[in-house]
Design a protein around this nucleic acid. Structure first.
Lengths: 351, 351
DNA sequence: CTGAAAGCGCTAACAT
DNA sequence: ATGTTAGCGCTTTCAG
């Protein structure tokens, strides 16, 4: 924060511009000049002040990612992937978490937490459609998860219904017919929960085995504890499923723990399928079959969406000066990432 | 990025300074004036440009945290705690990960990845003492983990030797005598690995049961896979421990998986203790006894250390202007966070 | 209590 | 190919 361009210029006996040229690797600088300036830079230990550069360029090179909870491995893994994807565009990532609280999500979406950013990736859990309408912030926003907001924001999603149907079909194929769904939450605007439940229902109905409400176990959240609780409640009420499809891996893991405690063997007595493919799922006493969304693709798409919004913004700027550009695509695009079913021990055939 | 102080000032028919005063909640502003300015702010949807403010103040309100890998729940949990601790000081956190690669760690420590930051918290894995010596960056740096660098940087640690001894003592107390150590890595400068091994050895020797080298299982890393591999190798070579103390929970979990595969029952045949207390450890088929470092304290101490460095820096600045301040404490302090042993199923007494 | 003006460090026209 | 100059939007003396 001490030595500036001016100091270097003075030291090297050249103008500020020349130093700037060297720093920015401009083409037209005499090798001699470059060497002289470089020497001054090294001697003085000059480091460009990024804040000043940002102010001038109107860009910071920082994007923010807000997830519900970093303690949730799925989001931690997504965060890691976003950091990598951002690095490829020379962007760094400011991380925030919302605890899945709607108020925090609104705050973040309005930019109250981090305001020095070029763009924002938000993974909402409780955010309602209206919450984004009043958004006054002009930084590009990308939503992670199902499109639920009829607003001009890009969002990255997977086809939750199909994914859930695939999971259930897999269980049906293993001869299971009483397949419980763990992790329903009707009181929440969380779309994935609704869609996975819908997929579960559709597939069961299509197979003609019926989807009784008693097999739907609501949870107060989607952590291991919630899964355990829901599984226990289900069993306590006398329901005896021969398979469980859980909202996510954490819920599935909690459920497996309870099944184990109750002496029900996975997969023999009860088969289990999760969702997310977190690393943890591969290493339990019984490895977990799961629907694996392509997390790296999700991250890549999210960052790319932001980058393209940024380019469009500056493109528009230039366009204004240089004549109509015209065809900048409107926001509100949907990108769908792929998924696959990873079959593991928790759904092996019966002995 | 559009409407600025000037616009608001113009709109409200006041000077720029007055608007600034309102924005910054200055004391001496007439309520009438304040209301008028506030109205203009609202109408225009003014939002202060943080970059400009930062340039002026020489602070960005951003600190960076670099951990080896967010996919590792320990670091993900630490990251979450750091974000919370930082928020209490109105700081946001830029996150980076190094993959535990020394080169990346050096890069980060030099500020090559994120340069718009007020401070940096680095959790090094492979960094060597010398790597920090050439650090030209002037942003405050705090190291997470054992002090291994005789350099003027604060660092936050726990007493790894004592913690390891506590774990081993617990196993000895459960009547175990052939206690393997999983996760030794002599080729790495990673201090915790060395210190935990040392603690293991000290406690065993003190108890008079001996610490034969054959019970020390090196690993190529500290993930679940490494733990599984090491456990398998140990068993394959005919060693039959009655307990395992693992470098961390992930290694322990990998080991438990292999024990399970081999038909060895935890804790009956082999007791297991991990380190870190990641959430995952509580929900396996067999919950894991573990040494739990106070992660929130670690995060809090790290952020506080940074904050105090920042205050000292600006204090010095003021001191220069207002006369000698003198007694700013030197850097290079050590903060020790506490830990506790959480006894769970993996070390229950034998039947 | 409010206004005017300087300048944080840098980049981008525009000149030369 | 290099130098000059004008701000980016804000805070901060210093006057009034």
């Amino acid at each position: 924060m001490r030595v500036s361009l001016k100091d270097v210029a003075q030291r090297a006996g050249v103008s500020i511009k020349t130093v700037s040229n060297v720093v920015n690797n401009y083409q037209h600088v005499t090798p001699v000049m470059r060497a002289r300036v470089q020497a001054a830079i090294d001697e003085l230990g000059y480091r460009p002040n990024l804040t000043a550069r940002n102010l001038r360029k109107g860009r910071t090179g920082i994007i923010a990612l807000a997830v519900p909870e970093l303690g949730n491995p799925y989001f931690a893994e997504i965060a890691g992937a976003v950091i990598d994807a951002a690095a490829e565009h020379e962007l760094t990532v400011l991380l925030d978490h919302t605890r899945g609280e709607r108020e925090q999500e609104i705050l973040v979406s309005q930019g109250f937490r981090a305001r020095v950013i070029d763009g924002l990736i938000l993974s909402p859990l409780e955010l309602e459609s209206g919450d984004l309408a009043g958004r006054a912030d002009d930084v590009p926003l990308v939503l992670l998860g199902e499109r639920e907001y009829d607003l001009p924001y890009d969002h990255i999603a997977i086809d939750n219904v199909s994914a859930a149907r695939l999971a259930v079909r897999h269980l049906l194929g293993r001869g299971r017919t009483r397949i419980a769904f763990l992790g329903a939450r009707t009181d929440s605007p969380n779309r994935p929960a609704l869609l996975r439940l819908q997929g579960w229902r559709e597939e069961l109905v299509a197979a003609g085995v019926g989807a009784p409400d008693e097999l739907i176990a609501p949870t107060g959240g989607w952590d291991r504890g919630h899964g355990a609780q829901a599984m226990a409640r289900l069993l306590d009420s006398g329901i005896r499923p021969d398979a469980v499809f859980a909202y996510n891996d954490l819920v599935a893991i909690g459920a497996m723990r309870v099944l184990h405690e109750r002496g029900l063997r996975v997969p023999w007595d009860v088969a289990v399928v999760g969702f997310d493919d977190i690393a943890e799922s591969r290493f339990g006493a019984v490895s977990l079959t799961t629907v694996a969304p392509d997390k790296r693709a999700i991250a890549r798409l999210a960052v790319q969406s932001l980058v393209s919004s940024l380019e469009r913004a500056s493109g528009r700027g230039e366009g204004d000066a240089a004549g109509e550009r015209g065809s900048a695509p409107a926001d509100g695009r949907t990108f769908i990432a792929s998924f696959e079913l990873l079959e593991r021990e928790s759904t092996l055939g019966r002995r």
